[in-house]
Write a protein that binds this DNA or RNA. Structure first.
Lengths: 359, 359
DNA sequence: TTGAAAGCGCTAACAG
DNA sequence: CTGTTAGCGCTTTCAA
């Protein structure tokens, strides 16, 4: 049925080893032989059997990628970059999606481990590190992306979560807001760091920062809608809501609209990630921007080094700084130390940024 | 290094065959033996080597999934459903993303074929079927999702593209629009069918339907923006634009805004796919809705049947009907034969649907 | 019910 | 430069 290395060898009147050498580009074959073998491979439409190769080399040239929800444009983009970059390095990617459920994550990881992936990129749903531990116990190199357990026994690539949310909170304080709420996301440790950034800045200015100003959101835009409803339908409603993602912010914007509140006049809203929706003319959401691709790229490079055994055991942590992208969802204020962003295509009108204070 | 079936056999004082029988749940092992073997497997943390198993069974329990752009929320959602559903069936999914580039698609397919996937779900970028042919030549079952070549030598699961765009065009005509443009997407055959639907309905009402009313868009929201700019900055600008996706429509909305045109007063806009952004209070885009999950599910079931050899060679075509979801981007008109949609969470206010005419 | 042997397609190690 | 041999870890076939 399948064309094997033996068929090629027979047809080319050489040994299987020579075919193997040709196929793997090893420079020990006479040019004439190589050409003949290659021609026959093409003719017979030969494809090396990856399973057989894996069995003997011990490497499948595959990595596993686990994200909470691929349908979320942020994780979708991340998956895009990751699969492309990995492919350029000769690795296929087994992708899985947990739906923010711990059980699903464990099952998924078990399956990926069983497939014998060479390494794992883990944008985890769990915070206790159970999944990470299981992968490590299986002897598979792991790199954490975005979320991380505490303490984190492997490399972690993420935002400077606390610094980023200090910046955005400071911005709102500078605009005169006194009651600033925080809409938490689902990734616990990430959210805790962000909440810390939010709270520390409020504390520094002696502004309210109690737990009553924190709302935990559910999944997606609907989760943000519920959080927005809960925060904005109170008597002492906040004048600003800092959201853990643009998607959450979208839900909050809808909640404000349904409650008859104008943004930014009645309530200011900020997001995080600078997805395309944040830049839409009808949304114009002030948000935090960082370089997704660079972060993913660095994480992948590190994972490759680990797979190659090029690095020691010592875990590293990489925190990417964020830029504040000022649009219209908090009110515009002239004279800020702000600059246009050239990359805010197609039309940067009204967009300004302020750099992160934690480079 | 790795724990193998032999280690288990030795530790349990049985043969490798017995271990294999236990691990694969074959009911030929005495209960006592099975329990002992299972205990030792757990103790030694044994994971069967998938490569070795694949080598002998000839199946890797993996499918390949190729989509144009995972970062596009539509394809992101599709990837989510697909990977989950496949996992439930015991299959892992190798995911790849072409960036709408034919060369990238061919390279990706070659790589997936090389990995020995058991089947391929192809939301193709190419229209000439070159990729499809390559996969079939490799003897791998393929099912097409969304896009398809003509003629299509395998199963195809897609929208009733022509019917869907007849409905939305008819709706606009019913609202009194006379100059209705069409913003084409990138998938050629899909777009051609949609254009046919748009055109046939205009023809039926003796309205303009020339190529000057068709704009071909680029990738994503920015592509839609450019198309919108080109259509709306003309002297004889259309009073309505039918867009091939919600993302394109988002770009057109931005273009309208930048040109100082109000929606729907100066120009009506419609989308397709009913993504979350279409339902946002500030967007409220009239669009076409269909059941993504069901479509993916049916396509996957068919692929599984093909993999199992349960179906003959005859390709089938499945065209899912669409519903029109009426929101505010075309102007509302009372008294239509329209009903509320219960599923338009969180708040269905102002949303109505009209069923497809091609069930 | 269990065991022994053969071999899946490939690569690594060594011999020619 | 090329060929031969010996497995990789597992399942399948057949024998006990």
């Amino acid at each position: 049925m399948q064309v094997t290395i033996k068929d090629i060898a027979r047809a080319a009147s050489v040994s299987v080893q020579t075919v193997s050498n040709v196929v793997n580009g090893r420079p020990v074959v006479r040019e004439e032989t190589r050409a003949r073998v290659l021609a026959i491979c093409r003719e017979l439409n030969y494809t090396p059997n990856a399973a057989a190769r894996s069995l003997v080399t011990g490497s499948r040239k595959m990595i596993g990628a686990v994200v909470p929800h691929i349908g979320n444009p942020l994780y979708g983009e991340v998956t895009t970059f990751l699969t492309r970059a990995a492919r350029e390095l000769g690795f296929s990617t087994l992708v899985g999606d947990t739906g923010w459920e711990t059980d699903a994550e464990m099952a998924l990881l078990r399956s990926l481990i069983g497939q014998g992936v060479d390494g794992m990129m883990l944008a985890s749903t769990t915070d206790d590190g159970a999944g990470l531990r299981m992968v490590q116990d299986a002897g598979i190199p792991v790199v954490m992306l975005f979320n991380y357990p505490l303490p984190c026994p492997t490399d972690s690539f993420r935002l400077d979560n606390a610094g980023a949310f200090r910046i955005v909170t400071r911005h709102l304080i500078g605009l005169g807001h006194c009651r600033i709420a925080f809409a938490r996301g689902l990734a616990r440790n990430v959210s805790t760091a962000r909440e810390e950034g939010w709270r520390s800045e409020l504390q520094r200015h002696s502004l309210p920062h109690g737990d009553d100003l924190v709302a935990v959101t559910g999944i997606g835009q609907e989760g943000g809608y519920a959080a927005g409803m809960s925060l904005l339908s109170r008597a002492d409603r906040p004048s600003a809501i800092v959201c853990s993602s643009d998607i959450i912010a979208c839900g909050v914007l809808d909640a404000a609209e349904d409650l008859g509140l104008r943004v930014p006049h009645d309530v200011a809203v900020t997001g995080c990630d600078d997805m395309f929706v944040a830049g839409m003319r009808r949304i114009r959401l002030t948000t935090l921007r960082y370089d997704h691709r660079a972060l993913v790229r660095q994480a992948l490079d590190r994972l490759m080094d680990r797979i190659a055994g090029k690095v020691g055991e010592d875990p590293i942590t990489m925190s990417t700084p964020c830029d504040l992208v000022i649009r219209d969802s908090c009110g515009m204020k002239a004279g800020l130390r702000a600059t246009r962003v050239a990359t805010d295509a197609p039309s940067p009108r009204g967009t300004t940024t302020i750099g992160s204070d934690t480079p």
